[in-house]
Nucleic acid binder design. Structure first.
Lengths: 333, 333
DNA sequence: CTGAAAGCGCTTACAG
DNA sequence: CTGAAAGCGCTTACAG
């Protein structure tokens, strides 16, 4: 059951391989009789152009790598990753490009650069979850263009595409909502300090509170997980027992925080209001459901895919896209 | 900035391309002087063998497709999918095979078969979440071997690899745990009737209850989501107001069921015990945390990858693997 | 031990 | 409008 080649199709149709190739490429200036003969035989044989040959000839792979930190997949951040991935994959499929998963392996750091140099993909999309310094370094002199979903803190090739959400504005949205709900002693559970996104959210929160004439409350750090949110909330309560509002930089941390508050006998949102960030599954399943700042994750993935495809085809591409965040009101505020 | 070819390396090292190829392939019977010259120049130029050319020559793609139903990604089943994907991708990476994502597009059903005929991948892994009849049909005469994670209900090529968890045993585990907790009026929230896995879980539950001399309680269907679990629980309460135990065929449905029970004034597990299935994130974040039947999702993905790689290389491969399920005790029982 | 040559399957510039 | 030929970059069987 060996795969048919274009020569098989040409032979069966009684034409030269060049003619067969032209028909299959959709050329219009071919004898109609030959055209239909080729089309018939191709269908009959189940012919499909060999991927490798086409790639070797054309110089383009028709594939784009999706770089992901594999220890993240299936972990607590699953939903973040999955949403962005979904958007990227949809965008690539629309451009008739194959998404190739590139697990960023911590043990074998040369693997991805090596793969990129083999010409197997025409570009890469990096879905940045945690700051991955070694990855940013490894991609520094990439032979193919890169689109980042989530702006890295470290310096990147100025030719790169960056798609992110409006973290600064999102932080401000959260602060304003808390203030408007009458909260005055407002703490924050921010993310890891080496993560640009978390810092921006905190900056938006600080600035908005200050604009409202409110002194920002205590600041504690988490790593975006439920557990870290619980630990952070406990510290927050120690530092400010009279706390009446909390902004958490991820929904998972917000969910953890709620649990600790409830265990400490504080009612949410009666005694303490909480606003999360992301709008992933847990925002709807937590009790009470979370008021949160929504990131358009799927749209971000799609935007990255579209810009990257445009760049690869030499079309003008948006280099920096900051998509808007929105406040989704549920019951924790 | 054009990619260097093996001819560039050979020229720089002052040898023939054949010799350069031999050195790069790790041949030992080459003059040491030439060997080191080639190695030096290859490193200097950042040479990496062209993927397309190697593939065309060797006849093997060195890549495996991961077929996924894209409407599922990022949805509520995200965690199921992500875990299996993670395992598969890890297994493939260990075998030096690239995972290529193949979104199963509902609109363009011919896309995947077409792609398979192009020789771009040496095999495919299908992560079966919902029953996807058209996908099973589309893959019926695949030119490459297939590994299924989750056995499809419809007939598949007998040469295929199937990896699943012990759904029958898992259903029995759940039933036994409920009985041992003293429950006697036990209902079930099962999955869609066209899904083999759900049916097996229900069969295991029925058989184990019967063995214990207990008549199985009411049966209602959901579609594995939180919302469907809520609706199903409401129907269950109507049908059997004196219910004291529930087995839900997914953790998401179990979480939804708990919420409805609590809203109806029933305490979990004091009044009603619940056992879920899967052991994904929500099992730990729901209140109370779920006692559930764990599926080894990541291991399943990895097993599929390993068996498929073995088959592609003509080595003996396990055709059917049923991995054990285990009961994880938390607080809903 | 080394090099010249063939061939994987495709597409397109060239000649007719 | 059609066909013979070249060439993408690689690897390996063949000859020396």
């Amino acid at each position: 059951m060996v795969r048919p080649t274009i020569v098989d199709v040409a032979k069966a149709a009684g034409v030269s391989r060049a003619t067969a190739a032209r028909v299959l490429a959709g050329a219009t200036n071919v004898d109609p009789v030959m055209t239909s003969a080729v089309e018939r035989e191709a269908a009959l044989l189940g012919y499909e152009a060999n991927f490798a040959a086409r790639m070797l000839r054309g110089g383009r792979a028709g594939a784009i790598g999706l770089v992901v930190a594999f220890n993240e997949i299936g972990s607590l951040n699953g939903t973040f990753f999955a949403s962005a991935l979904k958007g990227a994959a949809k965008g690539l499929a629309a451009g008739d490009v194959q998404p190739v998963l590139l697990p960023a392996d911590d043990e074998d750091r040369g693997k991805i650069p090596k793969f990129l140099r083999s010409g197997a993909v025409d570009g890469v999309i990096v879905i940045l979850q945690h700051e991955i310094t070694h990855l940013v370094e490894a991609l520094a002199d990439s032979p193919v263009p890169i689109a980042w979903v989530g702006k890295p803190q470290y310096e990147i090739d100025p030719g790169s595409i960056v798609v992110d959400s409006d973290n600064l504005g999102g932080g401000a949205l959260a602060a304003r909502a808390l203030v408007e709900a009458g909260r005055r002693t407002i703490g924050i559970i921010t993310g890891p300090p080496d993560m640009e996104q978390a810092n921006e959210r905190m900056r938006g929160w600080t600035e908005e509170l200050t604009r409202s004439g409110i002194v920002p409350g205590p600041i504690v750090h988490g790593d975006f997980t439920v557990d870290s949110g619980m630990a952070a909330m406990a510290r927050l309560l120690q530092r400010a027992p009279d706390l009446d509002g909390v902004f958490a930089s991820s929904d998972l941390m917000a969910a953890g925080a709620i649990r600790v508050l409830q265990a400490a006998g504080r009612r949410v949102p009666l005694d303490v209001s909480i606003v999360g960030f992301d709008d992933v599954l847990i925002a709807t399943t937590s009790e009470p459901p979370l008021t949160t700042v929504r990131q358009p994750l799927e749209e971000m993935g799609r935007a990255a895919a579209e810009a990257l495809i445009a760049m690869i085809h030499g079309r003008p591409a948006e280099k920096l896209q900051i998509l808007p965040t929105t406040l989704v009101r549920r019951e924790s505020l």
